[in-house]
Amino acid sequence: MTMKKYAMHEMLEVHEIAAFKTVCATKSKGMQILVSDPELKAILQQDVELSKQQLHELGMILSNA
């Protein structure tokens, strides 16, 4: 498997996306406490889980670059 080389601006963009996803996940997690509707709570929990997966993938990109 070949390693890809990324330009500095690409790495900065990935870092910016990771920071944004972290804020989104934190907000969704915090909103779960305030929400009483079970369907909305499930949507927020699904968003948190998906964000964790995406942050892991972004972390792998950053660590391999």
Score class of each variant (00 low, 15 high):
M3P: 10
M3L: 15
M3E: 15
K4W: 07
K4Q: 13
K5L: 10
A7I: 03
A7D: 12
A7E: 14
A7P: 01
H9I: 06
E10G: 03
E10K: 04
E10V: 04
E10I: 01
V14Y: 08
V14D: 03
H15K: 15
E16M: 10
A18C: 05
A19G: 05
A19Y: 11
A19H: 13
A19I: 09
V23I: 12
K27M: 13
K27P: 01
S28M: 14
K29Y: 13
G30C: 07
Q32G: 10
I33G: 01
L34V: 12
L34P: 03
L34Q: 13
V35K: 13
D37T: 07
D37H: 06
P38T: 11
L40V: 15
I43T: 08
I43S: 03
L44H: 09
Q45F: 08
Q46H: 04
Q46M: 02
Q46R: 10
Q46L: 02
Q46C: 00
L50E: 12
L50K: 14
L50S: 10
K52T: 02
Q53I: 06
Q53M: 02
Q53G: 00
H56S: 05
H56V: 02
E57P: 00
G59F: 02
G59Y: 02
G59D: 03
I61K: 01
I61Q: 01
L62C: 01
L62G: 00
L62V: 05
L62K: 10
S63C: 05
N64R: 15
A65W: 09
